[in-house]
Simulated assay, not measured.
Amino acid sequence: MTALSVNLNKIAVLRNSRGGTQPDVLRAGIACLDAGAHGLTVHPRPDARHIREDDVHALGALCHSRGVEFNIEGNPFASPRPGYPGLLALCQAVRPAQITLVPDGDGQLTSDHGFDFARDGEALRPLVAMYRQLGCRVSVFVDVGDPLVEHAARAGADRVELYTGPFAEACASGHAAAALRSAAETARRAQAAGLGVNAGHDLSQTNLAEFLATVPGVLEVSIGHALIGEALYAGLDPTVRAYRRIVDAAVGHSVSA
């Protein structure tokens, strides 16, 4: 089965653009879980441009109380600073079910590439070990088509998250076949190395079903930007329920593609 994790960063962006507490990130998280999301994702960045440290604690407590997955994304190489205690400190305090490591630079607008395992693989190994010692599952962000995707297993990761931005762009242009083939092959190679496969970035109601029907064994999708954008028109509850229908319909298909 493919789990749906809703990324709440865009709710926090809207709140922070005005200051104050509205829209309420915690209330949005509750609404998503009530509508059937399997879990919640946040990506606190050092500049606190969206999700803040207090959000991480509040949403972590919510997920623990509901018995659902909390996924924290972040750059393991980013140093602590005022307002950002560092990814490790956040995870030590909250103990999420999953930590997704991404190679974002401090000023990067959004995640747009996976790790370079030739450069960072050995440096990742002790960091992955520290996060696993917290009892957390560790996923690492990878590019579709990465020839070294198996090195995520050498670094000690449990899963990889396929960066699906290029697929979404190809799908929007009507030329998704090659991107889908590459994603499916990357997933199979990761699975052959003993890794679970997640996926995320620019997945939407328009392209998600095709992706899950073609890429084998996707365990989790993390969706935020498109979902929150669609919810502006349809409402958060109906939108999450629509995504649940897509992932539920994919059960039994993605594993056999």
Score class of each variant (00 low, 15 high):
E161N: 00
L162C: 11
Y163K: 12
T164Q: 07
G165A: 12
G165T: 09
P166T: 10
F167R: 06
A168Y: 00
A168P: 05
A168W: 00
A170W: 00
A170Q: 02
A172H: 12
H175V: 13
H175R: 15
A176G: 09
A177P: 03
A177N: 07
A177I: 02
A179T: 04
L180I: 02
A183N: 06
A183T: 12
A183W: 04
A184Q: 08
E185N: 03
E185V: 02
R189E: 07
Q191S: 13
Q191H: 13
Q191T: 13
A192H: 13
A192E: 14
A193I: 02
L195I: 03
G196A: 15
N198D: 15
G200I: 01
G200V: 05
G200L: 04
H201Q: 11
H201K: 06
H201W: 01
L203H: 07
T206V: 15
L208Y: 06
A209Y: 10
E210S: 14
L212G: 04
A213H: 14
A213Y: 08
A213K: 08
T214W: 03
V215A: 04
V215S: 03
G217K: 10
V218E: 05
V218Y: 01
E220S: 02
V221C: 00
V221L: 01
S222D: 06
I223P: 08
G224M: 04
H225E: 11
H225N: 10
I228D: 09
I228W: 08
I228E: 07
G229A: 14
L232R: 03
L232C: 10
L232G: 08
Y233S: 12
Y233D: 08
A234T: 11
A234D: 13
G235W: 04
G235M: 04
L236G: 03
D237S: 13
P238C: 10
T239L: 13
T239E: 11
R241W: 08
Y243D: 13
Y243I: 09
R244I: 10
R245M: 13
